[in-house]
């Protein structure tokens, strides 16, 4: 690019009346290796601006999606807990029922045993009856 053009642009530049495109021209011009001695002093300025734009934000930003995750985890936990309590209750009830069943069974067995003993005794009554009949018949 013609030197006087650059000088004109520079003048406009310091009056802040250049356009973005013209400023880009200036940056490109000063990006080259050698510039005339009287313009050398502007070189750091434009180079610096070009360099400064290269800087990047590299830090990771923890966006709060975790709170979302936590929400769902807690929902799941509550579900599991209620289900667990429900199942536990059921299990406990079954246990209780089984225990009651065993107890009644034991009670019935006891009863049956005593009944058995009762009927044994009644068997003697039968004998008595037979003997009685025999006596009646003989008379």
């Amino acid at each position: 690019m013609a030197l006087d053009n650059i000088e004109k642009l520079l003048e406009k530049y310091f009056e802040a009346s250049t356009t973005v495109a013209e400023e880009q021209q200036l940056r490109e011009y000063f990006a080259q290796e050698s510039v005339p001695a009287h313009l050398e002093q502007y070189k750091p300025m434009f180079n610096y601006f070009s360099n400064a734009k290269e800087e990047r934000f590299t830090k990771q930003v923890p966006l709060k999606t975790r709170s979302n995750l936590y929400k769902w985890i807690s929902v799941a936990a509550v579900a599991v807990l209620t289900f667990g309590i429900y199942l536990g209750n059921e299990y406990q009830e079954r246990k209780k029922a089984e225990y009651a069943y065993q107890e009644t069974k034991k009670a019935f067995e006891l009863l049956a045993e005593n009944f058995g003993r009762g009927t044994e005794k009644v068997a003697y009554l039968k004998e008595f009856e037979e003997a009685k009949q025999k006596i009646y018949n003989n008379n």
Binding site: Y13, P44, M45
Partner: peptide
């Protein structure tokens, strides 16, 4: 904005010339 920009650029130039 123009005034501020012009001033800023001129200050930078001045400092650079001083250094140069």
């Amino acid at each position: 904005v123009r005034v501020a920009l012009s001033r800023a650029r001129k200050t930078v130039r001045q400092e650079l010339i001083k250094k140069h």
